[in-house]
Design a protein around this nucleic acid. Sequence first.
DNA 1: AATGAATGAGCATTCATTCAT
DNA 2: TATGAATGAATGCTCATTCAT
Lengths: 182, 182, 182, 182
Amino acid sequence: MTRPANPTRSDAVRNRDLLVAAAREVLAEQGLDAPMSAVAKRAGVGQGTLYRHFPDRLTLARAVLDENVAHIEEVAARPGATLADVLGVITWQMIHSIAFVSLIRLSGEETSQDLADRVRTAVDGLPTESHATGTRDTDDVMLAVAMVSGAVHGPTEQVREATARRAWQLLGIEIGEVTPDH
Amino acid sequence: MTRPANPTRSDAVRNRDLLVAAAREVLAEQGLDAPMSAVAKRAGVGQGTLYRHFPDRLTLARAVLDENVAHIEEVAARPGATLADVLGVITWQMIHSIAFVSLIRLSGEETSQDLADRVRTAVDGLPTESHATGTRDTDDVMLAVAMVSGAVHGPTEQVREATARRAWQLLGIEIGEVTPDH
Amino acid sequence: MTRPANPTRSDAVRNRDLLVAAAREVLAEQGLDAPMSAVAKRAGVGQGTLYRHFPDRLTLARAVLDENVAHIEEVAARPGATLADVLGVITWQMIHSIAFVSLIRLSGEETSQDLADRVRTAVDGLPTESHATGTRDTDDVMLAVAMVSGAVHGPTEQVREATARRAWQLLGIEIGEVTPDH
Amino acid sequence: MTRPANPTRSDAVRNRDLLVAAAREVLAEQGLDAPMSAVAKRAGVGQGTLYRHFPDRLTLARAVLDENVAHIEEVAARPGATLADVLGVITWQMIHSIAFVSLIRLSGEETSQDLADRVRTAVDGLPTESHATGTRDTDDVMLAVAMVSGAVHGPTEQVREATARRAWQLLGIEIGEVTPDH
DNA sequence: AATGAATGAGCATTCATTCAT
DNA sequence: TATGAATGAATGCTCATTCAT
């Protein structure tokens, strides 16, 4: 348990969490260009507080993605986890958040290379579920994720999920359950 | 003699072309959100002129894409053209224009369905070059294009081209020369 | 008959008439702030032509009012015309043209004093129809017209006419038929 | 202690007042179409501040008129107040503010019906000062106000006041002192 | 440290006026 | 002389960011 014994900061920690949660929702709905004020309002804090925690839009977006990545890492670390399992989770995230897709898109940039690297590390060495898929080069897996993200569009989550599934099929890669796994 | 006096077309046509060319550059560099004023400035015309020709941003973007699509159609219509040839041209366009990628991304929307349809029609029925590729369902080809667009990122055109080529490989689809073919 | 024998200018005269007619409609509908381009478009002429005939908005507006005033003068000059007759015509004009009311409003300014003077002259010395009204000071009549113009508002012509009639009643002034008298 | 921290009202209240005062002046001088930026500049605040307090031009105009109407209500509520007193105050406001006149003009519209209603309510039931005037129907009084507003024009306040007085005379309505009564 | 008001730059859009043809 | 395209100033409005409290 890494609870920092720092009781006076409990407010700050709480606000940070509120902001990340709010940003997740707002960015998912409106995309990366959403007004910062909308995030502050949804979190129920002042604009100044938002800027205290996240000096710029990218820092905030990265904090959101960080939780996504942390969840991916967690799933990957489970005993018996397979590549398919992890890809299922990633696919769920792509389907449900415009921002997540946009952030993957920005991953090539200097902006969030570290996050991409963490996903790569998590994926690296995971066993593939069947011989049909075969062992994958990690770079190729990351590229495949980016490719599927390019396919994930459509008005409803149902449409986006169907498209994503077909995209994985075209790549010949099996994925597990598409689930938030929260 | 009451000459109708409607000769001033030379300016107008020239300005329209200047604007589309400027928009192509600006949108390629800055994406679909680029300021309209930047387009007008690059074209060397006033803002009013831009709005006279293109009442809104989408109309302008469509005019740009229209030329891309027209070129794709032209290549597809050549005697002996194959799917690989056309995909090579499309790939070149994706590598060189952020806007083109963004527009592919928007294709699902009401915005530019007609343009996407024209590409689909152009692609439909093109012969595949080798037995390795096999006959392709047109929907899958369009999905593959979207997928590759998701992979096309990177600081330089060289990197983007290499990534795009690898993406096509993962899909098992052969493409022809990556060329503007102007 | 004051038809000037100047055949080469027939086009110009025709355009002037078209413009005044268009301005009458457009100003009546949209008020004095209507775009000049809307007038030119409605007249079916170019913007340049409009500016050739009417260098500024006020000149154009005055030309419209001039026809109104000319009609008032014509009615006033008829044998047997009474003040009530003329006020009926004026009332009709107020009811049917936002611009006419606005122009009356501007009449105090230097802008169209001459037009106001012509109305005054036309009104001056007209016999009143009945002893109920009595002889009127011309200045007061002009003021009364301005006052009624202040009352002429409402969504429909029916409402505006009813309000105008009540306004004249409050002033104790009888008016004749409310008619364009074209 | 988690002090809610909401003390910053002083600035906000002050700025709101500055804006209303500035708007009063600017609208009085330039009418309802005055640029919003002119109001912000006169108030000495940024444009954003203006929009924070008044999201659109009508809201701002209504805030200005609200003070006028509040003052009318206050005078009407004084013990012993007569219709003539209130009409005197209204007349003063018409003479000194183009905007007030314009707003009376707009009263028919959906825009500020509530304000017009408040004036009507204030006027309703006020005693008339002398038998010369007699009891007035409230609708007629409101119409009379609109009529006088139509007469209030002229280059100087002196001219406008003289015209307004004559207009009331033509209506046979006595008014009290023409005064701001601040 | 939190709040939310203030700032002002930035972008979209309209329209009066000019001018090339 | 007529046309209508071009210009660019003006205005509305929206945020990102700063700062007084």
